[in-house]
Amino acid sequence: MSLIINHVSYYYNKNTAMEIKALDDVSFKIEDGEFLALIGQTGCGKSTLVQHLNGLLKPHEGAIYFNGENIADKDFDLHTYRGKVGLVFQYPEHQLFEEDVFTDVCFGPKNLGLPQSEVELRAYEALKQVGIADEYFYQSPFDLSGGEKRRVAIAGVLAMKPEVLILDEPTAGLDPKGRDDLLHLIRNLHDKNGITVILVTHSMDDVAAFADRILVMNAGQLVFDDEPRNVFANEEYLNRIGLSVPEVTRIMHLLYQKGLPVRQDAITIEEGLQACLEILR
């Protein structure tokens, strides 16, 4: 699997007075098995980019190649492609519609044209993966709690067995436990099932803890494409574009300014602890 985004630009309300350039010459490459984080201020084009990856929007300039094929081509099979690159929207629980949880999760694999037995098997597996207990299977999805609804909605995408899973702010509006559970679920999917993950988020601490690589967007442009440590070294610039660095990095920077000679490249709590211990020894 390889996904290449090649000089992609996209406009909203093209050719009118309200024209907005939502993506401006964005290029990058996604490798198999990566855990990518996509960060940027609200309105910087993250969601637009993510919809391109799944073929929901077509670039006005540039192209996206999946295993060498242009996904905007007329004869490209978008239907199957959407099963391979799963997209979980923001507040995905708003897309639930079936009478019961199980049937709702079956919707995705059924659309892929799989035989009924396979559809049900996948739905069962997906619901188990997200930790929904059997007794909920035949309840109405609208009777569940917010966190449970969200997990059911994510199961609805997982049941299609995607190779790449894109999640647009999956933890928005969840309580701390719901957040932790969900992030661990995502990490498990990446580590155990080998799914390539693209996580759109506003939490720098999550990014530091999980991602191998960060894409930073600002005003439709891709401004960073690097390891978290290298990106978070630019605190001042990140602040300027409405972003921040993880709490720990911030603390290390402040300690240094106060005259403590700590290393400043710590991005997780463990690293921060190590850095502090080093100067105490």
Binding site: Q51, R82, G86, H94, Q95, F97, F107, G108, N111
Partner: peptide, 28 residues
Amino acid sequence: KAQMARGADFESGNLFKRIKNMVPLLVP
């Protein structure tokens, strides 16, 4: 878009099928 990402099809099929395909859109 969310339903299309789950493989829903709003464009093809006869009238009856299209109306049926609208359910995943209309309920939410």
